[in-house]
Design a protein around this nucleic acid. Structure first.
Length: 561
RNA sequence: UGGGGUGUCGCCAAGUGGUAAGGCACCGGGUUUUGAUCCCGGCAUUCGUAGGUUCGAAUCCUACCACCCCAGCCA
């Protein structure tokens, strides 16, 4: 669950802020045109309408950035409207999580927080209006019967035997539905449109159903609840939404959206404009599947850092600015798309490169003993960020026992190896140059300790040794380093476009690796939460669990062995 | 097989009849006490295919092909 500490985001925005360019996608072009032609006067009004039945993911972020972004750019307003018409699936817990996510992303709905349930009474009256015009009727077919009479993609449906009930009878029945005289499923209110329509949505769609269920906001006030198609368009109209933006799968619903507004007495008719949803490689965006991952414990809840959820990305250390930049770069079109996760990673690195303090941590420690060093406790200084002197400096201790990365030592180095190997020298970042004199191994021959000598006159910043080692590696001082757990993440799914029919087979078995790592004390003591561990990547200190760091993203690796 | 959509570089994506932007990725090269960053350079004679209109077509017309969505009392 989202906790308070997770939301206290001390992230310093990168100087590379978001360009003010409004974008030229087809939706912005359309809005610009509507404004210029005077079709829309009085400002742009948009809305982000989540159903509170799950957590938001990066696909929602695309919609949030679009809706709030467009309103910002054109000087308009955006509603955060919860589409809470199905009490069986929704809960207040999701409402709070969604609000936290939207505001963490950096958007402000001001006093425009609404719920579809705020409009239940008005919705009911519009339904009555439809009945009075003989454009809706109470159908007493079972769900099964309604389905079987809907027809197929190629065959028309057959009209309900209740289609010709009198207006008076319909009015009476609908009132009694509301009064709770019937059981769930006994009756339903249907729009009277066209059972032969090639668009299935127009074949007398159900617009109200009976549900004796407790609603998180209206309690037991209602036992009938309006369906999406009837609700959404009316809420849009009531709120004066000038551009109702939604995803492609609702294109087939647009005729119904328009039909409802055309057949009730409401003086505003927003246009529905559809864009394609976001596809991201190596992950899943379906709420159903995301829910399954959580329920079946394939991940550690909705905020598992491997999840594409906003909460997961937040825990992982991804910044709001990086997500916004990503959404800006992917654009908005009607094309099906599968964006490479590398673009998201690029946005994350770009933001963190210019803002995250640097430090050193060793994920897989290999002991190094300096045989000729006697200055234990020596204090060195290093900048928090070499390119950003304003971030200041931190202190590092040097000592006789150090740890370096196992990967930074090779018995049998490949050509152009720039790390440590027997008899060779390397510089310890911000410290001294050392040479590997002896390798101590365990029974299996694996190196467990390196005995090295350091070059006294090679101290970083005042090097008079004249030596030019091929490389520089990171390290920590055994005497002062803090033991921490570091979690490194890989793709949740092995394939770029996973086959979700077999979730188990599709899941990447190596998506999480935990390291018993060592970090320099200055990192542990810092109140910053995001760091670059030099040569490794960007890491985020877990907001709730002490001594736990998440690898947000690796550094770009130009190393070609 | 009905209806609704979409097809421009490996991935996004500009382009709206005047002769293919940009980003990511990738490949070189330079700087570098992070194999990072940064900097330079390369990367679609061609726009799903085939015809047609036009002085001129990714943009207009015709036909075809491929892919996505729709048969919840979910949203």
């Amino acid at each position: 669950m989202t906790t308070r500490s997770e939301l206290e985001d001390g992230h310093r925005p990168s100087s590379a802020g978001e360009p003010a360019d409004g974008g030229t996608d087809f939706i912005r072009q359309r809005i610009r045109r509507d404004l210029e032609s005077g079709v829309v006067t009085g400002g742009v009004v948009t809305r982000f309408p989540p159903e509170p039945n799950g957590f938001l993911h990066i696909g929602h972020a695309k919609s949030i950035c679009l809706n709030f972004g467009v309103a910002e750019e054109f000087g308009g307003e955006t509603y955060l409207r919860f589409d809470d018409t199905n009490p069986l699936k929704e809960s207040d817990e999701y409402v709070e999580a969604i609000k936290a996510d939207v505001s963490w992303l950096g958007f402000d709905w001001g006093d425009r927080l609404t719920f579809a349930s705020d409009y239940f009474e008005q919705l009911y009256r519009f339904a009555v209006e439809l009945i009075e015009q003989d454009k809706a009727f109470v159908c007493s077919l079972s769900g099964e019967e309604i389905r079987s009479t809907r027809g197929t993609l190629t065959e028309p449906g057959t009209p309900s035997p209740y289609r010709d009930r009198s207006v008076a009878e319909n009015l009476d029945l609908f009132a009694r539905m509301r009064a709770g005289e019937f059981r769930d499923g006994e009756h339903v209110l249907r729009a009277k449109i066209d059972m032969a329509s090639p668009n299935l949505n127009m074949r007398d769609p159900v617009i109200y159903r009976i549900r004796h269920a407790h609603h998180q906001r209206t309690g037991s006030t209602w036992v009938i609840y309006p369906m999406y198609d009837f609700t959404h368009c009316i809420c849009d109209a009531l709120e004066g939404i000038t551009h109702s933006l939604c995803t492609l799968e609702f294109q087939d619903h647009r005729p119904l959206y328009d039909w409802v507004l055309d057949n009730i007495n409401v003086n505003f008719h927003p246009p529905q404009i559809e864009f394609s949803r976001l596809g991201l490689t190596h992950t899943v965006m379906s709420k159903r599947l995301l829910n399954r991952l959580v329920t079946e414990h394939r991940v550690d809840g909705w905020s598992d850092p491997r999840m594409p959820t906003i909460a997961g990305l937040r825990r992982r250390g991804v910044t709001p600015a990086a997500i916004r930049e990503f959404c800006r770069r992917i654009g908005v079109t009607k094309q099906d798309n599968l964006v490479e996760v590398e673009l998201l990673e690029f946005c994350v690195r770009q933001d963190l490169e210019g803002s995250a303090p640097r430090g050193m941590a060793v994920l897989d420690p290999l002991k190094v003993t300096l045989t000729n060093y006697g200055g234990d406790g020596e204090v060195l200084t290093a900048p928090w960020h070499p390119q950003l002197p304003v971030l200041g400096e931190r202190e590092l201790t040097f000592g006789q026992t150090l740890y370096i990365e196992q990967e930074d030592f090779s018995d049998d180095p490949p050509p152009k190896y720039k790390r440590l190997s027997p008899g060779e020298m390397v510089r310890l970042r911000y410290g001294y140059i050392i040479r590997c004199d002896e390798v101590i191994r365990d029974e299996s021959g694996r190196p467990v300790e390196l005995r090295c000598s350091y070059v006294a006159e090679s101290k970083s910043g005042s090097d008079t040794s004249g030596l030019k080692p091929k490389g520089v590696i990171h390290w920590v001082d055994g005497a002062t380093a803090m033991p921490v757990r570091v979690r490194a993440y890989d793709h949740l799914f092995t394939d770029a476009a996973p086959d979700f029919s077999d979730l188990d087979a599709a899941l990447n078995p190596h998506s999480l690796t935990e390291h018993a790592a060592l970090v320099e004390p200055a990192i542990d003591a810092s109140r910053e939460t995001r760091f670059q561990f030099e040569r490794l990547g960007y890491f985020h200190r877990d907001p709730d669990t002490a001594g736990l760091y998440h690898r947000t993203v690796t550094l770009r690796d130009g190393y070609r062995p």
